[in-house]
Nucleic acid binder design. Structure first.
Length: 848
RNA sequence: GCGAGAGUGGCGGAAUGGCAGACGCGCCGGACUUAGGAUCCGGUGCCUUCGGGCGUGAGGGUUCGACUCCCUUCUCUCGCACCA
C-alpha cells in the first residue's frame, strides 16, 4: 500500500489557521506513520495492564470486560468486510478502555481449512507456508488499521500448542460418550472429496465450493449435540434481548423441536412393529396409508418379492437425484407400493405401505402414517396413487382447500374404547396419547430436527483425531501425555483429493503400535471439522500460554462469558450453535461455571457494492488496501461506522469516504487553533459552548451504549461545527471552553478515528496516548437544556412555537399558547372544545 | 409455503405516540482566490396565487395528536423449506 500524499485528496493549508500545534496540513499518511510505531512501543491495550506478574494474586482492580471479534480466516489480506466488522468491535473496545474497564480484546486466526490445502497443491508446498504468510499479512494490516488488540494473546488454531488441546477436548467428549463413530449416509462433496455436516449443506450445495452434495455410506465421527437439543433451546431465553432476534429464530428453527407421539404400527408378515412419529396423533383415524423412506433399510427389508423389481427401479431413480432435485418445491409425489399392509392400531384397518422419497430416512423414524385429509403432502400422494381420504377434523363451512391443517372438532374418530369426536385438536391429542399409552401402542414424544454433528473430514489441513484403531482392541484413545498427535510433513500432490484422507497414505505416520496391546494399529486418518477448532478459541484467549489444559480455569472464571461478541450473521447456526454446545459440555464436566459463552451478540451487516455482494465475477470488488491508501485509515473507519445502523448492509457506492476525510480534517484543524494551555480552568469558559460540549458528551455516550454509532457521530459533527463557530465568530480560540470542547472531541473521536484523535491530542499539548485519556465526564446542569421549544398545534397542525423553560407549568404554558397572535389568528374566534397541555413541549387546541 | 425484518427527500439515513427529514453525500449560490476537485458561509422534501396546502409504500382503525400502536394489503430483503 502506498500512503503517499500525492495519491490522496488531502487538505491544503488553512489560511486562517492559528498557531498552536504545528503546520496546518493534515496528511493521514504522515500521521499514521508517526503514531503507529508509538502505539506499538506503548502496547496500551493489554488486558490486566494494572495487575502484577500473577494477575490472580495481584489483580488489576478494574471491572473486567471481554470484547470478542470473530477471528478471521487467513485467506489473504483483510477485505472490506473485515474493515467494517473490526471498526465496530474496536469502537466498543476502545470505548470500554476509555471508560476505565480492564478490557480483554484478543485476536487470533482460524487457521486450519481447505483453501490452504488447495493452495498447497497448486504451489507444491505445505499448507502452513501459505497460512502463516497470510496471517502475517493480516496481522500487519490489523496493526495499521489501529485495532486495539492485546497482541500478547495471539493464537492460531493450526499451532500444535493450540490443537493439542482441541484433541484433548475431543478425548474428554469421547470419554463422556459425546464423540462416537457410526456408519450412515452422509453428505459428500464430490469436488472437495470430503464429507460435510448438515450445517454445511446450503440448499443442497457444499457451503465452501457450491457443488451439489451427494450421499455416501461412511463410518464417521460425530459429536452428540442432540443430547443438548433441549438445553440449547431452553437457554436461548438467557440470550433474549441481547442477541439478534433473527439469530435466535434461526437456531430455534434449526433445532426444530416437535411435540407429538410415537405410534407403533404392525406390519403384516413382520414380527416387530414399526414406529412412526407424528405431531398429529389426533388424526390417527384418518391414516389411510403408510409411507417408508425409499432409502431407509426398512423399505428394502419389507418389500415383497413381487414388488422387488419395481422397488429397485424406484430406489435407483431416487439415488440418482441430487439434493437440489429433492428439494425442489411442488415436485410431484412419487413412490412405489411395497406389497405389504400395515394395521392402523386405532381401528384395525389394513392400510397399504409405500416407499416414497418425500419421507426422509434420517428424520423421525424414517416412516410415517399418512393422513391425506390433514396433510397436504399426504393429500398429494393420495391423489397421485388413488388412495382413500378420510376427514377426521371438521373444517369450517367456508373451507375450500384440500388438506385441512387447522383447528376443528374431531369427526369419524372413534373405536369401541376411545372417541375423539367433538374434541378440539389439543384435547384429542392428549386423549389419544393416553389411550395409546394405556394399550402399549405408543406414547407422547418430542423429536428434534437437529442431527448429531459430523466432525470427520477427509482432509489434511485440520486437527488430527487422536484415536488409534486396533484390530484387537478397537478404538483406542491416544493418551493425554502423547498429545498433540502432530500432522506429518505432507505437501503438494500428497494432498490431492482421493476420496480418503491424505493422512491415510502417510504410512510412517499412520502405522503405529496399539497403545493398549502393542500390536499393529492405524491412526485415525481423518481430521476434525474446523468448526471444532473455533468452538473453544474464546476460552483459550483467557490464558493462551497455559500448558496444563486448554485453559486456566481461574482465567476463564475471571473473563468469561464474553460480554460482547461481534461478527457476521453467516455464523448464526454453525459456529454459534457449536460454541454454545461446547460450553454446555464443559459446564457438565465442571470445567466452567456458566452455560452460555456469549452474553451479547452484534451482527454487523455486509459491505456490498452497487447493490450486490462483492465478487470477482461481477467485477465490483472494492479493495480495502486501496481505500486505505486513498483516504486513510480514519476516514475509512469513520465511513463504515457512520454509514448507518451496524446491523444493516452498507453499499459502498452510496458512501462518501471523501466526506469522512473532510470531517476528520475539520476536527483536526480545531486542535491547532486552540491557544489556551492544558489544564486551564474550563469553568471560566464560554457557557454557550460548554453547554454544547456537555450535551454532546451525554448524547454521544448514550448513542455508543445503544450501538447507534451513526447517530452519535452526527452529534460529534455538530459539536465540531459549534467549536468552529466559537473560534471564528464567538468566544475566540483562547477561551477555555474551546479547549474543553476540543479535548472532549479528541477523546470521543479516539474510538472511531484513532490516528486523528492521537494527533489532535498532541497538538493540544498532551502526551500519548489519547486512547487511555479517560472518557470525558459531563455536568448534568450544563448538559440539561435551559430552554426547550414548545409547539402549539390546532387540531394537530403546527401553528406556533416559542422557547420556554424546561420546567414551565401546564398553566403557564397554556396561557402562553392562548396569548399567541398566530394561535388566535388561526383559531379565528372558534370555541375551544378541548385543550391538551404537555408541558414543556406541546399544547394542542381542538376547536369546536 | 412457513418464519423474521424492512419500506421516510435525488442518495445513505435521523426522529421515549408530540416541530418529519438530525447528520452526511449530492446539488445550488456566495466568500477567499490566477485557479478550485481545497477551505469557509448560506440554501436545498414537493406544490404554491407566498396566505398556505400536501407529504413517511397503499387502504382502514385507535388517539386531542401516528413514521411510530392495531387491522388489511402491496413490495423488497433475509432465513428455513417434503421435518411427518
Amino acid at each position: 500500500m502506498s500512503e503517499t500524499s500525492s495519491a490522496s485528496p488531502t487538505g491544503q493549508p488553512h489560511e486562517n489557521g492559528q498557531p498552536g500545534g504545528g503546520p496546518e496540513v493534515y496528511d493521514f499518511g504522515t500521521i499514521q506513520a508517526k503514531w503507529l510505531p508509538v502505539w506499538q512501543r506503548m502496547d496500551p491495550f493489554r488486558a490486566d495492564r494494572l495487575a502484577g506478574d500473577d494477575p490472580v494474586a495481584e489483580p488489576d482492580p478494574r471491572e473486567r470486560r471481554y470484547l470478542l471479534d470473530m477471528f478471521p480466516y487467513p485467506s489473504g489480506d483483510l477485505h472490506m468486510g473485515h474493515g467494517e466488522a473490526y471498526a465496530f468491535g474496536d469502537l466498543v473496545a476502545r470505548y470500554w478502555f476509555q471508560k476505565g474497564y480492564n478490557v480483554l480484546h484478543p485476536i487470533g486466526w482460524d487457521a486450519f481449512g481447505l483453501p490452504a490445502e488447495n493452495a498447497a497443491i497448486r504451489r507444491n508446498a505445505h499448507p502452513a507456508e501459505w497460512t502463516y504468510a497470510n496471517i502475517d499479512t493480516q496481522a500487519e494490516s490489523f496493526k495499521r488499521y489501529g485495532v486495539s488488540f492485546d497482541w500478547s494473546r495471539r493464537l492460531q488454531t493450526c499451532d500444535p500448542a493450540y490443537y493439542r488441546w482441541t484433541q484433548w477436548l475431543f478425548l474428554r467428549f469421547y470419554e463422556r460418550g459425546l464423540a462416537y463413530r457410526k456408519a450412515s449416509l452422509v453428505n459428500w462433496c464430490p469436488k472437495d472429496q470430503t464429507v460435510l455436516a448438515n450445517e454445511q449443506v446450503i440448499a443442497g450445495n457444499c457451503e465452501r465450493c457450491g457443488s451439489a452434495v451427494t450421499k455416501r455410506e461412511l463410518t464417521q465421527w460425530y459429536f452428540k449435540i442432540t443430547d443438548y437439543a433441549q438445553r440449547l433451546l431452553d437457554d436461548m431465553t438467557l440470550l433474549e434481548g441481547s442477541w439478534p432476534e433473527r439469530v435466535l429464530t434461526m437456531q430455534r428453527n434449526w433445532i426444530g423441536r416437535s411435540e407429538g407421539a410415537y405410534v407403533d404400527f404392525r406390519i403384516e408378515g413382520r414380527d416387530q412393529p414399526v414406529t412412526v412419529f407424528t405431531t398429529r396423533p389426533d388424526t390417527l383415524f384418518g391414516a389411510t396409508f403408510f409411507v417408508v423412506a425409499a432409502d431407509a433399510k426398512l423399505a428394502a427389508e419389507i418389500c415383497t418379492p413381487e414388488q422387488r423389481e419395481a422397488f429397485d427401479t424406484y430406489l435407483e431413480q431416487v439415488k440418482r437425484e441430487t439434493e437440489i432435485e429433492r428439494l425442489a418445491a411442488d415436485r410431484p409425489k412419487t413412490g412405489v407400493f411395497l406389497g405389504v399392509h400395515a394395521i392402523n392400531p386405532v381401528n384395525g384397518e389394513r392400510i397399504p405401505v409405500y416407499a416414497a422419497d418425500y419421507v426422509l430416512a434420517d428424520y423421525g423414524t424414517g416412516a410415517i402414517m399418512a393422513v391425506p385429509a390433514q396433510d397436504q403432502r399426504d393429500w398429494d400422494f393420495a391423489k397421485a396413487y388413488d388412495l382413500p381420504i378420510v376427514r377426521t377434523v371438521q373444517p369450517p363451512a367456508d373451507f375450500d382447500g384440500e388438506a385441512y391443517v387447522g383447528e376443528g372438532p374431531g369427526i369419524n374418530s372413534a373405536n369401541a374404547e376411545v372417541s375423539l369426536n367433538g374434541l378440539d385438536v389439543a384435547e384429542a391429542k392428549s386423549r389419544i396419547i393416553a389411550w395409546l399409552d394405556k394399550k402399549g401402542l405408543g406414547k407422547g414424544a418430542i423429536t428434534f430436527r437437529l442431527r448429531d454433528w459430523l466432525i470427520s473430514r477427509q482432509r489434511f489441513w485440520g486437527c488430527p483425531i487422536p484415536i488409534v484403531h486396533c484390530a484387537a482392541c478397537g478404538e483406542v484413545p491416544v493418551a493425554d501425555e502423547q498429545l498433540p498427535v502432530e500432522l506429518p510433513d505432507l505437501r503438494g500432490s500428497d494432498l490431492a483429493p482421493q476420496g480418503t484422507s491424505p493422512l491415510a497414505a502417510a504410512g510412517e505416520w499412520v502405522n503405529v503400535e496399539c497403545p493398549k496391546c502393542g500390536g499393529p494399529a492405524r491412526r485415525d486418518s481423518d481430521t476434525m471439522d474446523t468448526f471444532v477448532d473455533s468452538s473453544w478459541y474464546y476460552l483459550r484467549y483467557c490464558s493462551p500460554h497455559y500448558t496444563e489444559g486448554p485453559f486456566d480455569p481461574e482465567a476463564v472464571r475471571r473473563w468469561m462469558p464474553v460480554r460482547q461478541y461481534v461478527g457476521g450473521v453467516e455464523h448464526a447456526i454453525l459456529h454459534l450453535l457449536y460454541s454454545r454446545f461446547f460450553v454446555k459440555v464443559l459446564h457438565d464436566m465442571g470445567a466452567v461455571d456458566f452455560t452460555e459463552p456469549f452474553s451479547a451478540l452484534l451482527n454487523q451487516g455486509q459491505v456490498i457494492n452497487e447493490g450486490a455482494a462483492m465478487s470477482k465475477t461481477l467485477g465490483n470488488g472494492v479493495d480495502l488496501g486501496e481505500q486505505l491508501a486513498t483516504y486513510g485509515v480514519d476516514a475509512i473507519r469513520l465511513t463504515m461506522v457512520f454509514a448507518g445502523p451496524p446491523e444493516d448492509d452498507i453499499d459502498w457506492a452510496d458512501l462518501s469516504p471523501a466526506g469522512s476525510l473532510r470531517f476528520v480534517q475539520r476536527a483536526w484543524r480545531l486542535a491547532g487553533d486552540v491557544t489556551s494551555e492544558p489544564g486551564v480552568d474550563v469553568a471560566a469558559g464560554d457557557v454557550a459552548l460548554r453547554k454544547v460540549t456537555h450535551r454532546t458528551i451525554k448524547t454521544f455516550t448514550e448513542h455508543v451504549e445503544a450501538f447507534k454509532f451513526n447517530v452519535g457521530i452526527a452529534r460529534l459533527m455538530e459539536l465540531t461545527s459549534a467549536i468552529r463557530k466559537a473560534i471564528d465568530s464567538g468566544c475566540g480560540p483562547a477561551d477555555p471552553a474551546v479547549r474543553e470542547a476540543v479535548e472532549a472531541l479528541a477523546v470521543m473521536l479516539s474510538v472511531v478515528t484513532p490516528y486523528t484523535a492521537e494527533d489532535m491530542w498532541e497538538r493540544l499539548g498532551h502526551e500519548p496516548t489519547v486512547a487511555l485519556a479517560g472518557w470525558p465526564a459531563y455536568d448534568e446542569g450544563l448538559a440539561a437544556a435551559e430552554s426547550v421549544t414548545a409547539v402549539v398545534q390546532i387540531a394537530g397542525k403546527l401553528r406556533d412555537k416559542f422557547d420556554v423553560s424546561p420546567d414551565v407549568s401546564e398553566d403557564e404554558l397554556r396561557d402562553l399558547a392562548l396569548a399567541s397572535q398566530k394561535v388566535q389568528a388561526a383559531l379565528g374566534g372558534r370555541e375551544i372544545r378541548k385543550l391538551i397541555v404537555r408541558a414543556p413541549k406541546l399544547v394542542n387546541i381542538v376547536p369546536g
